[in-house]
Amino acid sequence: MADTILVIAEQREGKLNRVSLETIAAAQAIAAETGTTVEAAVFGSGIAGIAQEVAGKKLARVYAIESPKLAKYEPDGVVAALKAFIQQKKPSLVLMPHTYQVRDFAPQLATALERTLISDATGFHKDGGKLVFTRQMFQGKFAADVSFACPAPHFVTFQAGSFRGDKAEAGASPAAVETVNAQITDGVVRNQPEDPFKEAKQAVDLTQAEIIVSVGRGIKEQKNIELAKALADALGGEIAASRPICDSGWLPMDRQIGSSGQTVSPKLYLAVGISGAIQHIVGMKGARSIIAINKDAEAPIFEIADFGVVGNLFDIVPALTEEVKKAKAGS
C-alpha cells in the first residue's frame, strides 16, 4: 500500500461527519495528479453502516476499524488503533479533516510514529516531483507552501471548505469494506470521556438568517455594539460576532460565528471590524454576498469579501444605517 492515500473519515455518535467527504475529494484530486490509489478508514464501535456509506465513493477499499474501546472518542485508544493499522498498511499519505476531534489525536498519532502533521492545509500542488501543501499563517495574512522533510507516512489535515464534498466522486460499484478488529491493550486508555452535551439550548438560530451584521474586535467597546445593532435592525437582519466579542461577554455565545460557533450562509454577511481570522472565516465563507468594513486594508476579510470599505467603522456604520433607513422609507 506504499502508493496509497489513506483518508481517515470521521464519525460522531454513529453519523458520518460530512466534512469527511471533502477529505475524500482532496484525496481523489491528489491521486489524480500523483497516480496513487485512495483508501479510507473509519474507526469506532458498530460502524459497519458508516463504512458502507463511505464505500459509495470511488475508493479502492474501506476499512472499518472496530473495537468496543472506541465506542466513545478519546485519543489514546484511537492512536493505538490507528498506529498499528498504519504500521501494517504503510500508506504514503494520511489525510484527515481538520476538526476538533482530529486536532485532539492527530498530533499524538504523528508523534507516536515519529512523523509530522501538516495541519489545517487549504490546498496542494506539485512542485517538480514534490507534493507541496498550502496553509494559512499569521491569521490568514500570509499563505505558506509546506513540504515534508521526512519519510512517509505523511500526515495532513484539511481545513473545512477547502474542497467540495459534493465533488467527491462516487464509485461505479461500492468499494469493498474490510473489518479490522483493533487490539487496544488494557491500560492504554487514560482519559475517561463522558457523553457530549449542549449548553442551554441556543436562543437564536443564525443559520436561518438571511441578513447578518457581524462585529469583531474593531468595535473596541461594548457600548459600540449598539451601532451595529442599529444597522442590523435597519436591514431587518440579525446581529452576530466573532469569538473575542462573545468571550468578552459583549454578546451572548449563541451569537458567535466561526469554528466554535455557528456556521452560516446568509444572503448578506456584513462584517464590521472583523479582520477575518481563519476560525471566523470557516463559519461564514458560504455567505452569498460579503461586505467588509475594516480600517486595515490588509485585513484577510477583504480576501473573501465581494465589497470592501477601508475606513473608520464609527463613521461609516451610522451613515449606512441612516442611508438604509432613508432608502426604505422612500421605497
Binding site: 499563505a143 507552501d145 509546506v146 513540504s147
Partner: peptide
C-alpha cells in the same frame, strides 16, 4: 532536523 519545511511564505491569491 525539522520534519516539515516552509518552502515559501507569500500573500495569498
Amino acid at each position: 532536523e525539522n520534519l516539515q519545511k516552509i518552502e515559501k511564505l507569500y500573500v495569498p491569491q
